[in-house]
Design a protein around this nucleic acid. Structure first.
Lengths: 109, 109
DNA sequence: TTTAATGTTTTATGGATGTCGAACAAGGGT
DNA sequence: ACCCTTGTTCGACATCCATAAAACATTAAA
């Protein structure tokens, strides 16, 4: 049973969050996760890259404090840390997601 | 008299904006620019890097559509494209600047 | 106990990026 | 004319980063 390391709220850095969201593949994943509103295994969200690459992206998102990853059986359940991010940086994730939805459709990537 | 190239509003990309803001030096510059509320020459804002490096950073900010650069005499006047960004991605720059001010003091960098 | 499913880690690679010094360009002031 | 100020550009360098194949780990299912 793999245990994942997550930053605490006060360890979350703005530049790290922005950097994590600045990649199209990662932003699209976060966008999908927000739309689905519930915990999702990595594989449930279609991506244009290899699974090893996706594993790397999810690690970046996790270490930035944007998503939470939890093991359940063979799959990794991912969820947005909405509350934590809103507490730390009010409005940021929200406006970014709105902006993402206004320009890119989820299926494009 | 040097002429600078700026993206139009519909050419501005969210991932490019986020990437531009994800660098501490650039974010700090934007933060200062927002505080001063008026057009500023590059040199008016203190930075921890060489001027050639700063020139590169300002280019990234300009090409992302975050700042406008205009030549006046020997100096380059920089200003935030607040209106354009608000039109394209409502709330994004605003919340990011608020978040930046809540964690990093301008003088630190 | 095999076999399949789901991710992670490792290793490698090509491209982008932040950094700086030196040379250059252009204006203003003396 | 000369120099100073202010930036830009170029070349170089070290580092980071997105990508993927291959091997591995773990759990579920047959």
């Amino acid at each position: 049973m793999k245990q994942y390391q997550h930053p605490t709220v006060d360890q979350i850095s703005l530049t790290c969050v922005l950097h994590a969201l600045s990649d199209p593949v990662r932003l699209n994943y976060v966008q999908c996760l927000a739309k689905l509103t519930s915990e999702q295994p990595c594989g449930a969200i279609p991506t244009p890259v290899a699974k090893s690459t996706m594993s790397h992206h999810l690690r970046v998102l996790r270490e930035a404090g944007i998503i939470h990853i939890r093991t359940e059986g063979t799959q990794s359940m991912t969820s947005l840390r909405l509350h934590d991010l809103e507490e730390k940086f009010p409005g940021v994730l929200d406006s970014v997601l709105k902006a993402a939805n206004s320009t890119t459709s989820v299926e494009e990537v």
